[in-house]
Simulated assay, not measured.
Amino acid sequence: MKRLLAGLACVATLASGCGLATAGGYVPDAELAGPLEDVEGLDGASIAIGSKNFSESILLGKIALILLKAAGAEVTDLTNIPGSASSRQAQLQGEIAAMWEYTGTGWITYLGHEKPIKDEREQYEAVAEEDLEQNSLVWLPPAPMNNTYGFAVTQAGKEKYGIEKLSQIGEVPVRERTFCVESEFANRPDGLEGMLRTYGVPRGKADGVPGDNIQLYQTGAVYDALASGECTFGEVFTTDGRIVSLDLEVLADDKQYFPNYNVSLVVRDEVLEEHPQVEELVAPVTEELTNEVLLRLNARIDVEGLEPADVAEEWLREEGFIS
């Protein structure tokens, strides 16, 4: 816990060179209810929660913050950290006690494995075992939701090409075989190049996907580019609310190329040892985090423009976890 407090002091003095920048915002007040009503023992606990700087991660961070605060903990909101590398380093250094993380990210990006494990449960168990052993981080049981990468087409594109799965990409004429992707995805080991190779349309090949067919966009801009016809295929996250609002069709990953990205609350081991109630607090909430739930909640943020904290609070109240 001393390392955690030292990390919080580091966060409070960013100008001294600690390097963690965040804009967390507020945490609503609430009381625990329903299956969480009898959770006790967190009064006076000091717990910092972090997240990355995209809507779903911030939303999940707010859910954890609201629950912990309602249970009596003194919470520090360090959500909205720019980038995976910064947030991961902050947790490794003890600046944050817990944050939601994705099994695929942990296995490939953080632990350095090249090949994902196709079975969801086996992937979770492998990353949980290795991260605990190497970094003293505990991965609590994962949610059903799987926010993995995918590729989508518009309804017009689906009708024009008769396409429903990624193995049909090769049936689209080469000059119309165009892709809108984020720059990170274009270069990461589990990204575009491996996907195209797996589905028989290698990048840079005249009969595959020529380099000029690939357009790079900033995070989030892919959806509008796809919807407006800038490309035939757009990289998406499978729980992004804009899939619903823009009426996009996610193509089936019929060769199971993309890793599993089930989300789990990852807690520093010494924090969980001192406050085991954290697991009891988040377990029933985690079980309700399905793809359908996250699609709806993410849409409220990205499409309707609501604040993640408000969306988190409203959902927790609807589900009877707080009052």
Rank of each mutant, 00 (worst) to 15 (best):
G19P: 00
L306F: 05
T13Q: 13
A90S: 15
F179P: 10
Y217T: 09
R88M: 12
P173D: 09
A283N: 02
N291C: 07
D254L: 09
V75H: 07
G200P: 12
V266S: 04
A45N: 03
N260L: 01
G150S: 09
P82K: 03
G208C: 09
L137F: 01
A225F: 02
G44C: 05
E304L: 00
G305E: 01
A71D: 08
T109S: 14
Q91A: 10
F151H: 04
N53K: 10
H113D: 10
W315F: 06
P144G: 09
E37P: 00
G19R: 07
G106N: 13
R296A: 11
D77A: 03
G41N: 03
P189E: 12
G17M: 01
E74P: 01
E318Q: 14
D207P: 08
E270M: 04
A30C: 06
Q168M: 11
G106T: 11
I47L: 09
S87D: 09
F185G: 11
G208I: 05
L297C: 03
P142A: 08
N147V: 11
K158H: 09
V127T: 14
E40K: 13
P144W: 06
A70E: 14
Q215N: 13
L272I: 10
S183C: 01
M195Y: 10
L32A: 06
G229E: 07
E273W: 03
G83M: 04
I49M: 10
M1G: 05
G24H: 05
G208Y: 06
D29C: 02
V244R: 14
G150V: 10
G44P: 02
P210T: 07
R268F: 03
A85K: 14
E130N: 04
L295P: 11
A309G: 03
L166Q: 07
T286Q: 10
K158R: 15
D38Q: 05
L281Q: 05
L140C: 05
G61Q: 03
Q277T: 01
L295W: 12
E164K: 13
K69N: 12
V222Y: 07
L59K: 07
R3V: 00
L67N: 13
Y223D: 09
T238I: 13
P189V: 14
G208A: 08
W139T: 01
E40H: 10
D302H: 01
F321V: 04
G220P: 10
G229P: 08
E37N: 04
P202Q: 14
D247L: 09
L272F: 02
R175S: 14
G24R: 04
Y124F: 15
G24K: 03
V153A: 12
A152T: 00
L137N: 05
K52F: 00
P276L: 12
G305K: 02
E273N: 13
G24Q: 03
F321C: 06
E125C: 05
R317F: 01
E288W: 02
D253A: 11
V181L: 12
I169A: 15
N53M: 11
